[in-house]
């Protein structure tokens, strides 16, 4: 059976203007010479599948090809090669039909009319998407309740705070009940409380509307609390594509055990563990095998006079950071 989104061998190149440093008279004559362009792979040979009602996190360093992928899947760009089917349709064929069922929110650009209240933008979208009065009222009431934007929608957009505006943007994105939504860095610049509200909203709307959501972000909090699937890309190629739990088991970095000693004395650690850092009575012990963490803690507690011992919570950030560092090494070598 076909998945909801099937991407196979998708590639897209773009041209970059290249300027070679010139000296003296050549600086002037270069004005008249032909520009040199370099062809760069935005994405190459990308393949993945996404099921209906998934919340997919799509991450990678800057310039990895995230936005290009979104634009291809949203039908704005055409690939150089490869295919892509979303619900059996090719995005960049028959654009007008296709975009009726998708919603896109760019965290850094607004789709609301700047000088008018959000309500007016919603009315405009109602016209653009040819929503019936009943559909519109139902969606709007639902979104107003879920995002608590009742008081905001009659204020001109330019007078809203960023957090308030993002909520209105979300309402505008989901107003026409899209089946597939792309959120491009939705939480950029908003505070922690707002972010929590955003997470709750996305989870709820995912349930209520049965919408498939595709998020690109640099905020790993978003990934950890929302996504059931994670795709990591680098330089246009997929690096990781699976469930998040798999990431933890695949890329186990090391576990840190924090020990606070009762007295100033040497800490005795079992084999397979080593002391990483010591500051006064606080010692950091590193364990490189996830299976023996329990044993290590046991033996430390048995062999030493300790006040306090705790294991660092496994953090997605450390793993991603390590992966990104590997990317850099690869790039430097390449």
């Amino acid at each position: 059976m076909l998945s909801y989104i099937e991407v196979k061998g998708l590639s897209k190149k773009y041209k970059v203007f290249k300027r070679t440093p010139k000296k003296g008279i050549h600086k002037f004559s270069s004005l008249f010479s032909k520009n040199e362009f370099e062809s760069v792979d935005a994405i190459k040979n990308l393949s993945f599948t996404i099921e209906k009602q998934d919340i997919v996190g799509y991450i990678g360093p800057n310039g990895a090809g995230k936005s290009t992928t979104i634009k291809l899947l949203a039908g704005i760009l055409q690939p150089d090669s490869g295919t892509c089917l979303v619900d059996g349709e090719i995005p960049w064929k028959s654009r007008k039909e296709y975009v009726k069922n998708i919603g896109v929110m760019f965290g850094q650009r607004s789709q609301l009319l700047w000088d008018l209240p959000a309500k007016d933008s919603f009315e405009m979208l109602k016209g653009i998407y040819k929503l019936s009065e009943a559909e519109y009222n139902e969606s709007l009431a639902l979104l107003i309740r879920m995002l608590s934007i009742e008081e905001l929608i009659n204020t001109p957009v330019r007078q809203l705070s960023l957090g308030q505006r993002v909520r209105c943007e979300l309402a505008a994105t989901f107003l026409h009940r899209p089946k597939l939504v792309f959120l491009d860095e939705p939480t950029i610049g908003i505070d922690i409380e707002m972010k929590k509200k955003f997470h709750n909203f996305i989870k709820e709307i995912n349930e209520v509307m049965g919408v498939t959501i595709f998020i690109t972000t640099h905020d790993l909090d978003d990934i950890q609390s929302l996504c059931n699937k994670l795709i990591i890309i680098n330089k246009g190629e997929i690096y990781f594509n699976d469930k998040i739990d798999k990431l933890f088991s695949d890329y186990f970095v090391e576990k840190k055990v924090y020990v606070e000693l009762a007295e100033d004395e040497e800490l005795v650690v079992p084999p397979k563990a080593r002391i990483n850092k010591r500051e006064g009575r606080n010692v950091v012990v590193v364990v490189e095998d996830s299976g023996i963490v329990g044993n290590v803690i046991n033996s430390i507690a048995r062999d030493n006079n300790i006040l306090n011992i705790y294991v660092e919570k496994l953090d997605i950030e450390d793993i991603i950071l390590k992966i990104y560092k590997d990317f850099q090494l690869q790039n430097n070598r390449g």
């Binding site: 949203a74 039908g75 007008k96």
Partner: peptide, 14 residues
């Protein structure tokens, strides 16, 4: 230049 044309392309209209 600002990429706002994306938005026009994302709407189901001419």
């Amino acid at each position: 230049r600002n990429g706002d044309y994306d938005r026009y392309l994302l709407r189901p209209r001419n």
